[in-house]
Design a protein around this nucleic acid. Sequence first.
RNA 1: AGCCUGGUAGUGUAAAGGUAGCACAGCUGAUUUUGGUUCAGUUAGUCAAGGUUCGAAUCCUUGCCGGGCUGCCA
Length: 565
Amino acid sequence: MESIGEQSTGHHFIHQRIAEDCAAGRYEGRVHTRFPPEPNGYLHIGHAASICLNFGMAEAFGGLCNLRFDDTNPIRETSEYAESIMEDIRWLGFDWGDRLFYASDYFEQLYQLALELVRAGKAFVCDLSIDEIRAHRGTLTEPGRESPYRDRSIEENLALFQGMRAGDFPDGSKVLRARIDMGSPNLNLRDPVMYRISRARHHRTGDSWPIYPMYDWAHGQSDSIEGITHSICTMEFEDHRPLYDWFIEQLGIHHPRQIEFARRNLSYTVMSKRHLLRLVEEGHVAGWDDPRMPTLSGMRRRGYPSGGVREFCERIGVGRRENTVDISLLEHCIRQDLEGRALRYMGVLNPIKVVIENYPEGAEEELEGPLHPTDSSFGSRVLPFSRELYIEATDFMEDPPRKFFRLGPGREVRLRYGYFITSKDVVKDPDTGAVVELRCTYDPDTRGGQAPDGRKVKGTIHWVSARHAQTVEVRLYDRLFSVSDPTDVPEGGSFLDHINPDSLTVIHCPVEPALRTLEAGAVIQFERQGYFCVDREDSRPGAPVFNRTVTLRDSWKGGAGGEKA
RNA sequence: AGCCUGGUAGUGUAAAGGUAGCACAGCUGAUUUUGGUUCAGUUAGUCAAGGUUCGAAUCCUUGCCGGGCUGCCA
């Protein structure tokens, strides 16, 4: 407000609020954020946006960002999940340095702080059962009723809470509650539970704690303990902020500023843990890292470059309203990243044989093609050429529309980095009438793809020499769902009803021999088709398996339906 | 129903009382040995109604529509 000049425009509201705080000298101008996942699942693209936000804000203001696992519910959390989360964050390109923390690191401090609240008469031990607590809580429109244990003496509460910690009571028999206001219109303030008794074994503290703090109690204090200045979280915690403020004020400890933003949804996919879990458990996908999953491990396996994912997270911005980002923006960012660095090769996904009638039988030669069309530093590879080739079946039409630039009866096209060929005749299956082979002639003077007489052709198609081709497995991935919002289902329906039956097509097809030497993880483009990566799990030396990362843009209107122009 | 919160092109996001802009998507065209890339152009928007003001996406009022909240989950 008094610092209008510092409020640079064009930045999102979180950036602006942090800038305001810095300009006003809050937190001595320090900026310290944190990414606080619960280690009970895999990270997805929504988490990536949050990671970019937290690490990004710290970086933008010369601050720090911690990684803290909010591991307060041992029955759902494991170290394996924590490991995969760390791997994903590193893959995205962020570094938490030596600031890896766990809420469980603070169990003792949290316990001491709770004791402080008990001594101040601000927390009490409650013997009500789960159902009774629920019944006492009231509803959205009616106030709650106070627990009959609410007015226990401080001494009694102290003894009871220490007894809980010592393991004197059975699981679920008592809880520690904050003593706030059962009449508050904000349900979070109706004497919320701070601790429950549970003998569950914790992935880090083992069996040393029979009580575990609730998220609402642990989270804010953990942020405070770490000296976090800006606690960035999603909108559903907005109603919890008054509770976090209350705890901090009662305790008189460091008070971070919480800023909420709306979580991002992506079209043609689902993002909730519940939905993703169901896809995995019911076998609709091959696992959490299935290339069709919106998880970071899935995207990584599919070949999405982390730089493209980060760029996407930047470009979707941050807001406070419900939103659904168009998946085409993600695909755009991925293509943009890949365009400059994917090596170009040729592979024929849906082959049809071509015989060059005027090319000597048994002869062959080596042609050369650059590995990148504009960046010569990538070098080139050898392309063996012979009398029999494979081309894409969709690159030939017996009765082509006017705007079809590819092969048709009597038409001439260029074989990329090869020769001009002209279609002369077709061979058909006597039973089905389907075209099974093309008979063509080539022009020996067009070697490399250029005609000395200056003659032009409209189309350039990719090809592979049949004799030299290697057959490889290619997995053509498409969107997992066929509708923009899979969760929008009629009464009694399921998001599973919208699964795209063609989200994965596995084919075995001829590719150029140079591909044999590619290493797992390599990123390439099959020219005119799309970007692919060599699968890290299933590829073998000399036998790469390709995952289609994303198709190339296709602005040919006749592409899909063969529309006559 | 009570409390909290939000509504800007198809989608996402800027504009903090002063020309409604950017990106993706769409559409045109140019270039092109990928119908790719690149380049140029273009379609399309302030939820509604009142009010304040010389001037409102922005401030006020009312209405409409959306999201969140009744775990010993996070």
